[in-house]
C-alpha cells in the first residue's frame, strides 16, 4: 500500500516537473525578446528540473540520496537567478533591444 503511494507521488513529481520543463521550452519559443524569454527559462525551467531531482530522492528513499538530491535542488534554485541576472545585464549593456511592445526602459534613461 505504502509502496503504491510512494510510486504515485513520484509519478506526480515527475509529470509536474516535465510539464514545467515543457512550459519553459514553449515560452522560449513563443515569447518575443531575450528578456521575456529569460523569465520562462529561469523560473519554470529551474522548478522543472528541481522537481525531477526531488522525485529521484523520493523514489530511492534513503538518507544519503535524499541529502544529495536536496543539495542539488538548492544549488539549482540558487544559481538560476544569478545566471539569468548576469545574462540580462550583459545583454542590456551591449544594447540588445527590448521588444517594441515594451512600455518603458528606465535603465536606458539612467544610462543616457
Amino acid at each position: 500500500m505504502i509502496e503504491v503511494l510512494i510510486a504515485l507521488l513520484t509519478a506526480l513529481l515527475i509529470l509536474v516537473g516535465a510539464g514545467f520543463a515543457l512550459v519553459a521550452a514553449v515560452g522560449l519559443t513563443r515569447l518575443p525578446d531575450v528578456y521575456t524569454r529569460m523569465h520562462a527559462a529561469s523560473k519554470a525551467g529551474t522548478v522543472g528540473s528541481g522537481l525531477m531531482l526531488l522525485a529521484v530522492a523520493l523514489h530511492a528513499g534513503d538518507l544519503s540520496t535524499l541529502a544529495r538530491a536536496l543539495a542539488g535542488f538548492f544549488f539549482f534554485v540558487l544559481t538560476a537567478p544569478i545566471s539569468a541576472h548576469l545574462l540580462a545585464m550583459a545583454a542590456h549593456k551591449m544594447g540588445y533591444p527590448l521588444h517594441e511592445k515594451s512600455v518603458r526602459d528606465e535603465l536606458n534613461d539612467y544610462r543616457n
Binding site: G17, A18, A21, A24, A25, L28, V34, R37, M38, A41, G45, T46, G48, S49, M52, L53, F76, S83, L87, A90, A91, Y96
Partner: peptide, 18 residues
C-alpha cells in the same frame, strides 16, 4: 541574437538534468 542562444543553451542543461 547571441543572448537568445545562450538562454536556450542554459535551458538545455536544465532539460538534460531532468
Amino acid at each position: 541574437t547571441l543572448p537568445d542562444r545562450v538562454v536556450a543553451l542554459d535551458m538545455l542543461v536544465g532539460i538534460v538534468i531532468g
